[in-house]
Design a protein around this nucleic acid. Structure first.
Length: 701
DNA sequence: ATTGCTTGTCTTTTT
DNA sequence: GACAAGCAAT
């Protein structure tokens, strides 16, 4: 186990270890399995290993957990009673199916938001709790309990659609190895060497997978950094680092504490922020690098001023100091923050790319077109079928579809089978029957294309015959033109697949299901990347701008009520800082418009952790760099000017006292002046309360 | 019965 | 500001 700080060369350790094993120890490359966090990282690692080998030949398995599992399942899933043409459901598909199941199970969607139930189900899967293993007595409150009730229904629905969701890829593979010992043994023996990067972000299933593959051959090398654990909310478990030594007795632990990436000042700032966390392994990163420039912290009046500052400095770095745009990054906590930055970058004519946000393969038109192809491959996929049955509109509405569905339930047919029987069974009137017949004949035609030609021809036929092209052409708006462009882009993606790899349609669909945001990062051209703090993990840039350093954004408002979540925000901040090699710019705005409301945020608590020797403050208005950072966690806030006080009253993060509930912290606010509503999280088990500010008799602490 | 329109809701992070 | 659910108009 290699416990290694940021910038200490973790990934390099894995890459060189693999190269060493193969080159010096004569290990068969195909007996090596390396797990990375993104497909991009996997590709780069493979490339580097290949470069270190003398000649081509077999290569080690390098992939993400998800792609590894998908590969296993495509080969062996019949053992679990699925057909190997199963579909992979993304978050949208999952939600659609959950809603459908809730209707069937008569669960009120007002009392239980589908998203919340899905989150809990995902949580069960990440903890590797199968529906039959649910312990209802251990369930906490209402949502989790309801989710437990829905979980088996949802799994059954997935099965009848011959589909797995994202979390199933992992859980089902683990289940597969547990249920079929011969298979487990086979792969255990095959993979003599297993290496896992970013181990601090593995969850229970992933841990179990590693364990299952290393029972007979206990040769595992994991690399991680507990300070960079930022996926707790996704089920990641830092405990995995602790359990490791128990499950693998005789583990050698190697610490890497020298940082080769950042200047001393940046490292000091980052180290001080993360040091305040309680549950962490004490380690201090050091570097031989120069002290470097101080970290710059800029206070803007509003988010536009912040964006102006950022663009200004970027121009400066580019023109005066010769930084390439792709060596500078803008990082933020939430995707929504990118918009203002984009507007300003466009004005400044700086080329940029936003990583993340709405993914290409999640766009409506792309998903619609892909849904046609998914149905051809897997006719049981009713989620995709329902998506396209009336898209473009062809007169098959809600009521008709409901009747067909009822008929299907009664006869035990899949939706597609049901649609095919509409005519004979006289379920619907002549008009509706005819429309469904047309749709079926479109599908049949596409199916024959699918069987006879390549994916590229099929795609153009889908776009054409479905009526999608006509629909977009008729609309003739800026939006519809954009959608058409996306379809053209999809076309080039498939084109590439067919030309270069001679891939099949299913391989293409699989790859679309597994693309990560970061996989789209294109670091060749001089394009400036914008991304969230989560996405930036593993990357480095000469200059980094971390914007929105405010209580409520970083730390995010939703983390204020839970100390474990709050600590994760700190780590997130640490990850952001340590991406920077030479220059780190922080910024925060006094006012910020979000969702149409104006918020007055206070500067982030995390800024207070940074020693003034390594940080320089600036702002568009004077009086900022004079004082040390304001303290607002203590009892007195006399350092505020009166103007600042009225402005920041009840800001997110403010500690308050309530006559009944005692002390608490403001985690959200809405409305203005008289109608100001606060959401306050109280200690001592009172939990979240919504209060009207002028009625609640709150005392600001 | 379907369509296109309006209203209301909800926005942390993602393989 | 995006999107889904609910509405009146055809």
């Amino acid at each position: 186990m290699v416990v290694a700080g940021a910038g200490s060369g973790k990934t390099r350790v894995i890459t060189y270890r693999i190269a060493h094993l193969i080159r010096e120890r004569g290990v068969d490359p195909e007996s090596v399995l390396a797990i990375t966090f993104t497909n991009k990282a996997a590709g780069e690692m493979k490339e580097r290993i290949r470069a270190m080998m003398e000649h081509g030949g077999p290569t080690p398995w390098v992939s993400t957990f998800h792609s590894f599992c998908l590969r296993m399942l495509r080969k062996h899933i019949s053992e679990l009673g699925f057909s190997n043409d199963f579909a992979v459901y993304d978050a949208q598909d999952q939600l659609t199916l959950v809603k459908q199941c809730m209707k069937a199970a008569q669960i009120s969607k007002e009392a239980f938001p589908a998203k919340s139930l899905l989150n809990h189900i995902s949580g069960f899967k990440n903890d590797f709790i199968l529906p039959e293993q649910l312990d209802l007595d251990s369930m906490s409150y209402g949502h989790q309990m309801k989710a437990a009730e829905l979980y088996p229904v949802y799994q059954a629905a997935l099965k009848s659609n011959n589909a797995l969701d994202f979390d199933d890829l992992l859980a089902s593979t683990a289940k597969l190895f547990q249920q079929v010992p011969s298979l487990r043994e086979h792969y255990d023996k095959k993979f003599q060497y297993i290496l896992v990067d970013e181990f601090q972000d593995t969850n229970a299933v992933q841990y179990e997978l590693v364990r299952l593959l290393s029972m007979d051959v206990k040769n595992v090398c994991v690399v991680g950094d507990d300070d960079q654990s930022i996926y707790r909310w996704r089920g990641a478990n830092i405990e995995n680092i602790l359990n490791f030594e128990k499950d693998y007795p005789g583990t050698t632990v190697i610490k890497l504490e020298e940082n080769y990436r950042s200047t001393q000042n940046i490292l000091t700032a980052a180290g001080n922020v993360v040091r305040e966390n309680q549950g962490r392994n004490e380690k201090t990163l050091w570097t031989q690098n120069e002290k470097g420039d101080p970290v710059i912290c800029y206070r803007a009046e509003d988010e536009i001023g912040e964006a102006e500052f950022v663009c200004d400095r970027i121009q400066n770095l580019s023109q005066e100091e010769g930084f390439a745009f792709n060596d500078i990054a803008i990082l933020y906590r939430t995707n929504a923050q990118s918009r203002v930055m984009e507007d300003m970058l466009r004005k400044a004519e700086i080329p940029y790319q936003v990583i993340g946000g709405l993914r290409f393969y999640e766009r409506r038109e792309v998903k619609d077109v892909l849904a046609y192809m998914r149905v051809l491959i897997n006719p049981d996929d009713s989620v995709s079928l329902k998506r396209i049955v009336n898209v473009p509109a062809r007169g098959i509405g809600k009521t008709s579809l409901e009747k067909v569905e009822a008929f299907c339930r009664e006869k035990g047919l899949t939706l597609l089978e049901g649609l095919r029987h509409v005519g004979q069974e006289r379920i619907l009137g002549a008009a509706a029957t005819g429309k469904i017949g047309n749709f079926i004949s479109i599908l049949d035609h596409l199916d024959s294309v699918y069987r006879q030609s390549n994916p590229l021809e099929l795609l153009s036929e889908v776009i054409d015959r479905s009526g999608y092209a006509t629909m977009l052409n008729n609309e003739d708006t800026r939006e519809s033109k954009g959608r058409m462009e996306n379809l053209n882009e999809l076309y080039s993606a498939v084109e590439q697949l067919v030309e270069n790899e001679n891939g099949t349609l299913r391989e293409f669909l699989d790859s679309t299901a597994l693309v990560a945001d970061l996989d789209n990062l294109d670091d060749e051209r001089g394009v400036l990347p914008l991304m969230t703090l989560h996405t930036c993990k593993g990357l480095e840039f000469s200059a980094v701008f971390l914007v929105g350093m405010e209580n409520g954004l970083l730390p995010h408002a939703s983390s204020m009520s839970d100390s474990a979540e709050y600590e994760e925000e700190r780590r997130l901040c640490y990850v952001g800082f340590t991406r920077a090699k030479k220059k780190l710019f922080l910024s925060h705005a006094r006012r910020r418009r979000i969702y149409g409301n104006t918020f007055n945020y206070l500067p982030s608590d995390f800024l207070n952790s940074i020693p003034s020797e390594v940080m320089e403050r600036g702002s568009s208005t004077p009086d900022y760099n004079m004082n040390s950072p304001k303290q607002f966690s203590g009892s007195a806030n006399t350092s505020y000017s009166s103007e600042a006080e009225s402005e920041s009253e009840y800001s997110i993060g403010t500690k308050v006292l309530h006559p009944k509930f005692g002390s608490g912290i403001v985690i959200n606010r809405s409305g203005e002046e008289e109608d100001l509503k606060l959401e306050v999280f109280f200690k001592d088990g009172h939990g979240k309360k919504k209060l009207a500010a002028n009625l609640a008799n709150l005392i600001i602490l």
